[in-house]
Amino acid sequence: MMTSLRFAFSWRPARTVLSVGLLWLGLAVVATPAIAALRVVTTTEDLAALVREVGGDRVVVETFSRGYQDPHFVEPKPSFILKLVGADLLVVVGRELEIGWLPPLLTQSRNARIQPGGRGYLDASMNVRILDIPTGQITRAMGDVHPSGNPHYWLDPANGRLMAMAIRDKLTELQPGDRAFFDQRYADFDRRLSEAERRWEAAIAPFKGAKIVTYHRSWPNFTERFGLNVIGYVEPRPGIPPSPRHTFDLIAEMRTQQVKVVLVEPYFDLRTPEAIARDAGARVLVMPPSVGGTPEVSDYIKLFDHLITSLVAALTAGR
């Protein structure tokens, strides 16, 4: 009797401790997702780089299109749907860049949070400076026209800052507890970007107004920002080979205007631009327009470091 009573007394506190412990454990398990990192999916590596700058270790970022791929054409894989299913936030370039492949996947994911217009959907182009927006009626004579403007807007660091700001606001909205953290990381990125911008502008300053030809219209924001003068395009329409007249006129124009550099994105065939450059006495420069385009371009600031360095080298050699 005595022993059994003593056993009962000694057992009760242990049980209390155990149940309280279990309760806490349960709470911790339930509470963990709320304080865990936000799951962010981006369509391109440029967006992923900016999300990392602002979100740090409070976000887990995954991306679909690699920097060396053409973001217009992405071959969807089953894992894309799973990433979308689990995402808290989807960041897109917008301006119809992803129109060929993203919408059906997004519908398939049935993740209501990240549908366009949802809280977890961020179109990074909404507050940046967009070029080439057609005004008035679009006619065939205008050639290749993106009705909502040129989607390669991240190639101006001023836009990169605005995009980072939009990302900061969105992350804060989704995870208000980390406001100070995101603010601090954004401020740090802003400071480093401003420093870098002065460095890039100084490097390119001697070549202000330099005339170049680009393969496709991927660089208007970049060339506007750094004072380059694009006098023509190798392939005015994607996927359509240029007519002999266009090629002939372009070579003649390059000769008269003393163009020394033809900029080509890494996912285009080099044969046509190389033939044109050879005839016009210029050189072809392959430049990745995105983070991850080459292994050393691992973040947003390094992207411009790489672009400016290789461009300056090519322009110097062409002098």
Partner: peptide, 19 residues
């Protein structure tokens, strides 16, 4: 005037994205 991506999208469906 429209982008050739539209045409490719129309030509080449993707079975993963079928509704």
């Amino acid at each position: 005037t429209s982008q050739s991506e539209h045409l490719k999208e129309m030509l080449v469906g993707n079975i993963l994205a079928v509704s």
